[in-house]
Computed example of a mutant assay.
Amino acid sequence: MTPVQDKVTEAFEIVGAARPARWLITCDHATNRVPDWVSGGDLGLPAADMARHIAYDPGAAGVARALGDLLDAPVVLSRFSRLVMDPNRGEDDPTLLMRLYDGTVIPANRAADADERGRRLDRLYRPYHAAIDALAQRHPDTVIVAIHSFTPQLRARPPRPWHIGVLFDEADPALSHALIAQLQAEGDLVVGANQPYSGHLPGDSIDRHALQAGRANTLIEIRNDLIDGPAAQSLWAARLAPLLQTALTQAEGGRDA
Rank of each mutant, 00 (worst) to 15 (best):
M1W: 05
P3W: 03
Q5W: 00
T9G: 09
A11E: 06
A11W: 03
E13V: 09
I14H: 07
G16S: 02
A18G: 13
P20M: 01
A21W: 07
A21E: 09
C27G: 00
N32V: 03
N32G: 11
V34L: 13
V34G: 02
G41V: 02
G44S: 11
A47E: 15
H53S: 07
H53E: 09
H53I: 06
Y56L: 05
Y56A: 06
A64I: 07
G68I: 05
L70S: 07
L70E: 03
V76T: 12
V84C: 12
V84M: 13
P87E: 03
N88G: 06
D93F: 02
T95A: 12
M98H: 02
R99W: 04
I106V: 14
I106L: 07
A108V: 01
R110L: 15
A111S: 15
A112E: 13
R117A: 13
R120D: 06
Y125N: 11
Y128Q: 06
A134M: 09
H139Y: 00
P140T: 13
V143W: 06
V145G: 11
S149H: 00
L154V: 02
A156N: 15
R160H: 04
P161D: 01
W162Q: 11
I164Y: 01
G165T: 08
G165L: 07
F168N: 08
P173I: 00
P173Q: 10
S176C: 10
L179F: 06
Q184A: 14
E186C: 14
G192Q: 03
P196F: 01
G199Q: 07
H209F: 07
H209C: 05
A210G: 12
A213F: 05
A213G: 01
R215M: 10
N224H: 13
D225K: 00
P230R: 11
A232Q: 15
R239E: 03
L240S: 07
P242C: 08
L243P: 02
Q245I: 13
T246F: 00
L248R: 14
A251P: 04
A251V: 01
E252M: 14
R255N: 02
D256G: 11
